[in-house]
Every structure is written in C-alpha cells, then in structure tokens.
Design a protein around this nucleic acid. Structure first.
Length: 446
RNA sequence: CGGAGCGUAGCGCAGCCUGGUAGCGCGUCGGUUUUGGGUACCGAAGGUCGCGAGUUCGAAUCUCGCCGCUCCGACCA
C-alpha cells in the first residue's frame, strides 16, 4: 500500500480526552475516530489490526473444535423475558422498539439466542458436546465509557458457548477453551494470566478471567510470579487428549492468581513466598465460566440421555474482548514514540521509507523492494510521500510497524538499504535482497 | 446516578471576568526548497464561537433552558 493513496490521518498533537497511552496512540496513529461516547469508527489502520486479531481468534477457536456462527446484533425481547433476564439486566441493555412496537434490544451478550438455537435442533446425547461461537458487535450502555476502545459501549467480542451432557464433559469443554485462550493470547504476543474469578451461580472453580498485565489496567491483580512465567511455547496440543488439557489447566490454575474481586490477602501470603508475590494491574481481555443448567433450564434446552430421559444441558460461556485487545496490545507494546506491534497483529508487516521521493533511482529501488516483498506475501506500507525524512520516520515510529526498510541515495551508492527493527531500535545495512530474505524468514516463522 | 469540568478552524488552545462582531500554534492547500531524524521560505483557504431563548443599540463574552463530551466514584469483554 502506498501511503500517498492510503487514508492514514495521523495527528501530531494529542487529543485532550485521551488519558491512557493506547487511546492516545490509537487516535494519533489514525486508527479510530470517536463517533459518540464509547462508540468508535475504525479507520483503515485500526481496522486492519482488528481483523488480524479476529483472524487469530477464529483460528484458535476452530483448532480447539469450536464452530463459528454469526448471530444478529438486534434481538427480540421475548427470549430475554423467557430467561428472566429482560428485567434483570438493567439499564446497561439498550432497549429499542421497532415500527410495530415490538420490544427489541441490541445484544449485550448471546446466551439466550444460542441456547434457543441449540434447543431447536438438538435432541439427544448424540448432539453433544457442541462448542459454538461467534465474533459479533455487542452493546452495553456503560455508565461511563472511557479509555477509548478499552471500555467502549459498542465493542467486538468473541463469545462462545458450550453444550454438554453433564458437568464432567462440560469441564472438558471448559479446559479446551482455557487452553485455546492461552494459545490465542500467546500468539498475539500477550502475557495474559488466567485468574480465579467470582464463581457465579454454580460455584466451584470453573470461572477464570484472563488479565493482561499493564500499569493502566482497571483491575488490581495478585499472583504468583511463576504463573506469569509459564508458556505453552511450541508444545504440541491435542484437543482430544483430555489428560493433556487437564494437565495444562492444573499447571496454570493451581498457583495463586486473583483480581481484587477475589483476592484474599491471607491466602496470598500463605500460598506464595514473598519473593514470588506480584502485585500489579491488569486488563481483562477474556472471561470463561461454566454456568451449569442456568439457561438450559430457563429456556428448556434439554437432550435425551441414552436411557431416554431428558435433562437440561450443561453450559459454559467464553468471551474474548476483541476490540479491547487492540487497546491492550498497545498498552503492552509501546514507547514514547509510538506503538510497537508484534509481528502477529501488525497492520502491515513492513514499512518502506523512500528518503528521496522523486529521485528516479531511489524510487525505482523502492518499487523493486515493494514488489519483491509483496511477491513474498508480506504486506507493506510504502511511504512515498514528498516529505522530509524526519517526518517519515516519526510517522513510522508512531504507527509502529515492527520492521522498516529505508532506501536512500546514499545507501544505494553502496548497494545497501537499511533494515530497522522497531522494538529494539537496532538497524543494519544490507543489500535489498538480503533484507527481503530476512523479513521473509521472520514472517514465515509465524 | 453522585461529584467536578469542558464545548471557539482538522488538532491543541487564547479571548469570556470588565459585551463592540474572532485570534495564536500546529496541521491542510498552492508555490519555492530536493530534503539522511518532525526544524527552511512565501502565500492562501478554513469558524452557524454546541443548540435555542432572553437581556442589550450591540452577545463567543451576561442570564435561563437543552444537547454533547471529558474527568473522579459504584459496574463490565
């Protein structure tokens, strides 16, 4: 993509309303534009990141056996009356009325819809287990939206739902999702720790929130340092191997890790050695919980067992804040100059900077690099603007592409271009061919 | 919802107290400069001063109402 033809409205000055780094940087880098309180338009650059995150979430969900669907944003109030949540949900739910005076709502979540869908088609134990999910916009009329996309009223969420015959098999579904979340966040280049959450109506230990550690997080977190150091790495995961799943579950959830909602100072001190105690802040990016038969009973979603008797299915619900992740990623990856995207979600793989736009030789060299990178399947943002070098570098640093190739007449004389890494700030002079090869290898590894 | 503010050009702000019909910086556009880290020069465009009413000869400025937005608290992916 040529920058001169793109739509990248970067701001030199920081908009006054932005309080935290991710919000500031998203506005400055031309990723989002506020439409109204807590509601944002996604500009081209932001949209690309959102889509890449979404794609990774999709891949990891399906790898874990979850099946993608898409349910509408607008729902009928009837189902919610049936589950009893129409009144219970409160003013956070945006209620609307259609031309026939029917009560509708903009979905804050989809338990009712998915359960209705399941009950309509599923009849026997042979129809379970099932894991269905979608990635869809939600609306929750937050009292006070803030921090840009971190707490918007409209937000993009992956919400998945499991249907199982009993608690034992529902637990397996829960493990699958927990592992898939660990994989997802790891691929995103994020350190997200599952923390014991309020257990809700069922009790037990099957409720976890995933928190990204960041100073600007809204939750206080208390954890054993060793959990934050765990990693799946390139472990071979078999989602049909229940023992392996349970092992990973135990590995990540046995140690102390709680938010200030569930924190117990005495337990923290008795379970965690002083040197391992971490007290920090975190951003909630995921939430998984088992809720038993809460919705299946209310909505009559039952399946017949092998003996022919019908029983309500056991459900769980699994959320990932996709749009919030964009903010969380920036909170975790930025410096005073701008964003630093991990390779896995960067809006463009490589930035290409032409230091002497209009100089035939330099332009040609840039075009060649652009063609070659594109041929290798890499996305490139080519800064072909008629701008001073400083302005180009500043833009590149602000929008934070992980790699940058700089081409200028001085280097060309020596037959080299500059390849710079945004994260380390290091750069090297090498031939255009070598630079392209190197980038190609880096991205092939993802 | 309780508390505190703000709304003037795309962005950041001044002007308001003490009414006289709008200004600064950045950005944008045109031209010069041909640039190796936002840094040069010349010129230009761009504003219903959030909306409505009132007071006044006259309102960005004073009064009232409304709307929008932000910040601090209780809730959430």
């Amino acid at each position: 993509m040529r920058l001169s033809r793109y739509f990248l409205p970067v701001l030199k000055e920081t908009p006054a309303e932005a309080q935290i780094a991710s919000h500031r940087l998203m506005l400055r880098a031309g990723m989002i534009r506020q439409a109204s309180a807590g509601i944002y338009s996604w500009l081209p650059l932001g949209y690309r990141v959102l889509k890449r995150i979404e794609e990774i979430v999709h891949q990891e969900q399906q790898r874990a056996g979850a099946i993608p669907v898409l349910m509408p944003t607008i729902q009928s109030a009837d189902l919610w009356r049936e589950s009893g949540r129409y009144d219970a949900y409160g003013p956070e739910m945006l209620r609307i009325r259609d031309r026939h005076d029917r009560d509708m709502l903009y979905g804050p979540t989809n338990e009712e819809q998915i359960t209705e869908m399941f009950r309509a088609y599923a009849g026997s134990y042979r129809d379970v287990p099932k894991l269905l999910y979608h990635i869809q916009w939600k609306f929750r009329d937050e009292i006070r939206p803030r921090f840009g996309v971190m707490r918007g009223r409209e937000f993009l969420m992956k919400d998945g739902y499991s249907f199982d015959l009993d608690r034992a098999t529902a637990t397996i579904s829960y493990y699958k999702m927990l592992v898939s979340y660990l994989r997802t966040f790891e691929r995103l280049g994020l350190k997200a720790v599952p923390m014991q959450a309020e257990s809700g109506p069922i009790g037990g230990d099957l409720a976890h929130e995933f928190l990204v550690l960041a100073e600007t997080g809204e939750s206080g977190v208390f954890l054993d340092r060793r959990i934050a150091e765990l990693t799946l790495g390139d472990r071979d995961i078999d989602y049909d191997n229940h023992e392996q799943l349970e092992g990973i579950f135990r590995e990540w959830t046995s140690g102390y890790a709680r938010t200030d909602d569930t924190h117990d100072e005495a337990v923290f001190h008795s379970e965690v050695a002083e040197g391992d105690r971490v007290m920090a802040r975190g951003i909630e990016v995921g939430h998984i919980f088992y809720f038993g038969t809460k919705y299946s009973e209310a909505l009559g979603a039952t399946v017949a067992g092998p003996d022919g008797s019908r029983a309500p299915v056991h459900g769980g619900s699994y959320g990932i804040g996709v749009s919030r992740l964009v903010g969380a990623l920036i909170e975790a990856n930025h410096d005073d100059k701008g964003i630093i995207w991990p390779e896995s979600v960067t809006p463009f793989d490589v930035g290409l900077v032409n230091l002497k736009q209009g100089d035939a030789e330099t332009d040609k060299a840039c075009e060649d690099v652009l063609d070659e990178l594109s041929f290798r399947g890499l996305s490139v943002l080519y800064d072909d603007r008629d701008e001073r070098a400083g302005a180009k570098f500043a833009t590149a640093e602000l929008i934070g592409l992980p790699w940058r190739i700089t081409v200028g007449p001085r280097g060309l004389k020596a037959g080299t271009v500059e390849l710079a890494c945004r994260r380390t700030g290091e750069s090297e002079e090498l031939s255009a061919e070598a630079a392209v090869n190197k980038l190609s290898e880096i991205y092939a590894g993802l």
